[in-house]
Computed example of a mutant assay.
Amino acid sequence: MNNKINKLALASVMLCFFAMGFVDLVGIASNYVKSDLGLNDATANIFPSLVFFWFLIFSVPTGVLMNKIGRKKTVLLSLVVTVVSLLLPLFGESFGLMLVSFSLLGIGNALMQTSLNPLVATVVRGGHLASTLTFGQFVKAIASFMAPYIAAWGATQAIPSFGLGWRVLFPIYMIVGIAASLFLLSTPIEEEGPAFAGETSPTVGKQFAACFRLLGKPIVLLSFIGIMCHVGIDVGTNTTAPKILMERLGMTLNDAAFATSLYFIFRTLGCLTGSFFLRVVNNRLFFVISITMMALSMCGLFFGTTKLVLYIAIALVGYGNSNVFSLVFAQALQSVPDKQNEVSGLMIMGLFGGTVFPLIMGFASDAMGQAGAVLVMAVGVAYLFTYIKNVK
Score class of each variant (00 low, 15 high):
V139R: 03
E192Q: 14
S365K: 05
G163N: 04
L88E: 08
M298R: 08
A9M: 07
M98V: 08
G380M: 07
I348F: 09
L76R: 07
C229S: 12
L111R: 04
A11R: 02
K73Q: 15
V280T: 14
A330C: 14
L249D: 12
V231A: 10
L215S: 00
F196R: 06
F138Y: 15
I28D: 12
L333S: 11
N254P: 10
S49K: 07
F329H: 03
H128T: 15
S161E: 11
R213E: 15
L104C: 13
V168T: 14
G369D: 03
F224T: 00
F302H: 07
V235W: 00
I233V: 15
F212E: 04
T306K: 06
Y319A: 11
I189G: 08
P218S: 02
V139M: 05
G353A: 07
A29E: 09
V328D: 02
L116V: 11
L25N: 05
A259M: 05
S78V: 07
C299Y: 14
I360K: 09
F183C: 10
Y263I: 06
G250A: 11
C229D: 00
A151D: 11
R248S: 05
L56R: 03
V317K: 06
S290R: 10
M112I: 11
S30E: 05
G232C: 04
I172F: 13
V376S: 12
A367K: 13
G372I: 04
A121N: 00
L111D: 05
N321D: 06
A259E: 00
G106M: 08
F145L: 15
G300T: 06
T239C: 02
F95Q: 03
I69G: 01
A315D: 05
S115V: 10
S85M: 03
K389L: 04
T260S: 09
G304N: 13
A257M: 14
F17L: 11
T252I: 15
G21T: 12
G177I: 05
C229Q: 08
G226T: 01
M377G: 06
M146E: 08
V381E: 05
L119I: 03
F224K: 00
N109Q: 00
P89Y: 01
S326W: 04
R267E: 12
V60T: 04
